[in-house]
Nucleic acid binder design. Structure first.
Lengths: 112, 112
DNA sequence: GCCGATACCTAGCGATACTAGGTATGAACA
DNA sequence: TGTTCATACCTAGTATCGCTAGGTATCGGC
């Protein structure tokens, strides 16, 4: 699934997971950073709660799409950074394609 | 809610409801028609199950965004048509704006 | 009379997004 | 010293959603 099926199921459920994946496709990041980066880079249009992001990261790691590792800091609590696995890169590619198709389809329906 | 908040919550939960609303913004339709119309006009990219569409229609009606009415047919079972209420039109406008913002934000994140 | 296409509906399941908390670290300041 | 703040992580519980997998009913054609 993912590449062949209709977009609906993919995007409706793993939508935000895909966005997290997209961020991690640029560079490795930690959860708290992802929350503020998402909000900042989208001018507040996408403002996910921590309670959304942390479980999403766990699911992505559970599914083998990302790997996490602890990094100690000089100031403040340690951070758990994540980066994409090869599987994650593939999933991101598929996700981007799914997103493009869904976007086009939704635009057709919404008449934008 | 709707106009002011971040797009995420709106779209992730009412996403398909918005698409149904978008179809009904063009003309009144009945459930079964919506299913095939969605699939057809998006070339299969959006293929919602009946078990998705009928409950969505009930929610939209419950929320006052659409109204349904039975129409007898000469051939086959009767149909329940739906059309937008004034509230539904406003919600569709807001939904389109939300969609545009979310689309732009997601494109930024996904780098498309 | 039976089958297929149409057209509606729902219970139950799995998954998600969010709320509303909680814990812990280190810096700044009095 | 100790209190507060920003950082940074986590999770239980709740509401809701999309889907599966059924079910019912109407009408035309054979």
């Amino acid at each position: 699934m993912g590449s062949a099926g209709a977009v609906g199921p993919q995007l409706s459920r793993g939508e935000f997971g895909l966005l997290v994946l997209g961020l991690l496709g640029r560079r490795q990041m930690y959860g708290y950073e992802i929350v503020s980066e998402l909000k900042g880079s989208t001018e507040g249009a996408i403002d996910l709660a921590e309670g959304t992001v942390y479980p999403a990261l766990r699911r992505l790691e559970r599914d083998g799409l990302i790997v996490g590792f602890w990094v100690d800091t000089r100031s403040g609590p340690r951070r758990r950074y994540y980066r994409l696995t090869p599987q994650g890169e593939s999933a991101l590619d598929e996700g981007r394609a799914d997103w493009a198709r869904f976007k086009a389809a939704a635009d057709t329906v919404l008449g934008s």
